[in-house]
Structure formats: structure tokens, C-alpha cells
Design a protein around this nucleic acid. Sequence first.
DNA 1: CAGTATCCTCGAGGATACTG
DNA 2: CAGTATCCTCGAGGATACTG
Lengths: 148, 148
Amino acid sequence: MKHGELSEVYCSLARTWSVIGERWTMLIIREAFRGTRRFDTFQQRLGVGRNVLSNRLGRLTAEGIFDRVRYQQAPDRYEYRLTEKGTDLYPVLLMLMRWGDRYKVDEPPVRLYHKGCGGLASPELRCAHCGDLVDFHSMRAEYAPGAW
Amino acid sequence: MKHGELSEVYCSLARTWSVIGERWTMLIIREAFRGTRRFDTFQQRLGVGRNVLSNRLGRLTAEGIFDRVRYQQAPDRYEYRLTEKGTDLYPVLLMLMRWGDRYKVDEPPVRLYHKGCGGLASPELRCAHCGDLVDFHSMRAEYAPGAW
DNA sequence: CAGTATCCTCGAGGATACTG
DNA sequence: CAGTATCCTCGAGGATACTG
């Protein structure tokens, strides 16, 4: 199975992975959450090849994760802004970071504060129905017919 | 920057990505959450090459995400079980699935029920401090010195 | 700046045969 | 079963020069 074919399987994870599951893609999105919008800024901060970056930004724009917006005329200059579909990847990013905070570093490189309460935030997963904390053991999965 | 070098950068996301950010790795872990433990079962369900699967299971075992457990003697047979470090990736998996449920499929292939309350669960992120829903706009990030 | 073009390397992945 | 061994392909990624 090739990378692109993941998008055709009836599996939300596989399809999501076909969009963001490449070496640089998630790092580019993280950089965007950090406020980066311009080609050369992405390129310099990540150290990614210009051809690769060009390709990824194009694909993510086609996918609807970035908007390519002209911010200047003559000459025209464009920048990349996360769409709502893009910012909806924030929970994914947070959970990846949190796992790394726990298992891959001594001290978290990024601290998150919650604007609402002002506290140091360690976001956690709760059941939307009853509000209890959610983990692997508390969930039961049912597969639709045809699910991969 | 090579894939392995991501593990040396002072960034929880990059380091996590160096562990799970390859084409098959996250799909193998998902399959494990589904209950799969044995080499041939992984191989048949995912359609991944045997050499690649062998390599990934070895790396994930070395990383402490899988335990390689002998379940039979003469001949010895082994299976792979998620460790706690492995099941702690569940929130990552859930958030990836949820994004795919929203943007990549019409009908969710997998439905999750919360054992506690019996309800159909759509897990959501909340601030551990105040309990409010968390999204990108409600967070403020502070970077430690040396953070990538 | 925001790219495109070109050329190259390397390793992830696929296919298949073989083994204790 | 649970792998290892072998050989091959292909594309992701790196480096660098060039352009409007």
C-alpha cells in the first residue's frame, strides 16, 4: 500500500495519516501554530528543503489546511494561514506534545497557559457525555461494516 | 535533518515524531489497540511488508512501547503487547481519529462507547485546572530557553 | 522574498523465498 | 507461526542555483 492509498481506506486514522503522516508535515503545522506564515520563515526555522516545503505547503493548501493569502501587491507576496480545518488539528498537536513531555524530555520545552483561568494548563481528555476522564481501558469500540 | 535526528532536538513534538512519525508506525499501534498481538496478524491485517513490520516492532519494543512476551514454549513463540508507555498514546490516536471523523469520512468507521456512563463518547479536551474546553485560541505558549 | 528547477542520495517500503 | 534474507523500486528529502 502506498502512502496516498491510505486516503481511500475506510478508517479515519488512515485517512488522517495520509494527510499529515509524513516527516515534515506535522512540524510545518506546528510552526504555523507558533505564528509562522511565510515561506522563508518556515524554511529557516525548520531547515527543511525548499522543494519539499514548497510541495508540502501546496498539498496542505489543496487539502484546505492552509489558506494562501496575498499580503502585498507588486510584487505579489503570499503567506500561509491555518484554516479552521487546520486549527482543528490543535488537539492532535497537544496530545503529541504531552506524550513527548512525559516520555521524551526532562523539562517541557513549551509551557501552556490557559487564558480563561490563567493557570498552567495540562489539557486532558474527558467524556463529552458524563465528563469523566477518558483512557484506553474505559472505552469500548464498535466497528461499522466495512471499517478497515 | 534526518528522521532520527528529530529525537535530539529540544521539542516534545519533534521527539515524539521521531518515534511514531513514519508511514506504518501509527497504524501498527492502532492495530495493537484493536487487540492484535501477533506478527502474522499484524502483517495480514495491515498488508505491510514482513521486513518493515519486523523492523518497526523491533524499534517500538526497544523504545518501550511494546513488550515482547513469550506466550508458548517449544518452539518459543512471542507476541507484542502495548506497555503503559504505549497505551499512553491513546489520546493521540483518539484525536487523530476524531479529526478524520470530522473531515475525512461521512460516517465514522469506529464508534466509541464510554464504559463508565454507557454513552457514545466523543472525547474532548478540557483544562485540568478549570475544566473549560480547550482550543487553540484559548491557550498561550511560553517557550523555555533552548526550545526548538 | 517566495518560490521553481535540477540533480543527487538514501532509506522506507514491497515482493518473495526461505527457516527453525 | 514468527520471523530473516535478498533484491528491487520509488519517492521523500537534501543541496544548490536561479528567477520575477
